[in-house]
Design a binder for these strands. Sequence first.
DNA 1: GCTAGCATGTAACTGGTTACATGATTCT
DNA 2: AGAATCATGTAACCAGTTACATGCTAGC
Lengths: 190, 190
Amino acid sequence: MATAATKRRSRTTYAILGFLADGPKSGYEIKQDIEVQANHFWSESFGQIYPVLKKLTAEELIEKVDSPDSGKRSRQRYAISALGLAELKEWIVDPAEYATIRSEFLLKLFFGSHVDLDVSLQHLEEYKSWHLRRQNVYTKYRQELAKDKAPESPESVYKMAVLEFGIESTKMALEWSQKTADNLKATAES
Amino acid sequence: MATAATKRRSRTTYAILGFLADGPKSGYEIKQDIEVQANHFWSESFGQIYPVLKKLTAEELIEKVDSPDSGKRSRQRYAISALGLAELKEWIVDPAEYATIRSEFLLKLFFGSHVDLDVSLQHLEEYKSWHLRRQNVYTKYRQELAKDKAPESPESVYKMAVLEFGIESTKMALEWSQKTADNLKATAES
DNA sequence: GCTAGCATGTAACTGGTTACATGATTCT
DNA sequence: AGAATCATGTAACCAGTTACATGCTAGC
């Protein structure tokens, strides 16, 4: 098993490999990292993480490390292997697939003519507060990225770029929500 | 079966009911409508549409209409029933669920430090052209919405609002892509 | 000693996609 | 006649979520 196998793996696999490339982690820590750093564009459930961790260990893309973590809770950390890193890189290079998003919120708004105006306005309000909450998370994480580590480290630059995407998204979403709510109200009055 | 049953149905169900609320359609036509009108926030596959259509007929939320469609290809149209409309409305009123998006593109960019700068620039290029293609679709559909029907009809207003979201999204995405590409290049040079 | 949270794991389910099979109709 | 595309349908598969089960550790 010298060269990296090229069969397609689940995206969970690559997400895990990617986060392990930052350093050894347990399944639990991977989940936390994803929630903090990647909340706006990725998610994983434990039911997915643990089995994949097991499988990747068997295939030697990652390996258990005995944490000199004396006294801590029982947890098992994994480190990415050279083979794993090679597969991760291969995957990153591959063109990304653009899965169509399914936004329940937009679907409901789309069908808004069948219900009272208030319903759609309410949906828009919830949507706005959802994005406002996210804005807070972003600003917090941005500060961390800016000072905690070397701000010009190669990883930080990429992570910052993706974070920037989240920030711009919320900004756009908030502006659009406001505009749309105003529009709907105006149309109803006439 | 007088009152609308309240058990949760798949989102495909409601998407179908919603599009049928615009008028009787076949499974094939529903798919087309979704692709034209809802491309940026929804999608359905035939493998999902036809079985649901069957199930909804059995439950009397929709009913077969014998199309006076003489000479046309063999196709079966369905119309939404009063019961179906009631369930649709119930669902629209319910708070929307915000499923976390999973963007393979953003994940790859996030891990960009592990590969050559060119790889990420290439991903950004593809991302840009993907959004440019969408922009064309949007402008076309916008014109249709504006002239084809009464532009101030209640449905058009909601559909326009959602389309506007798509337009703003692509705009934001294109600006961010450009900025990010420039940033990455600048950081690499220093 | 008890509770809350840390941590791992598995089994069952489900929503949805892909691939396949089939036939009708229209156009050339 | 043959190709393209319209149109419906099903079976197999799969990725991912939910719910459940378990046990450890830290703090009260």
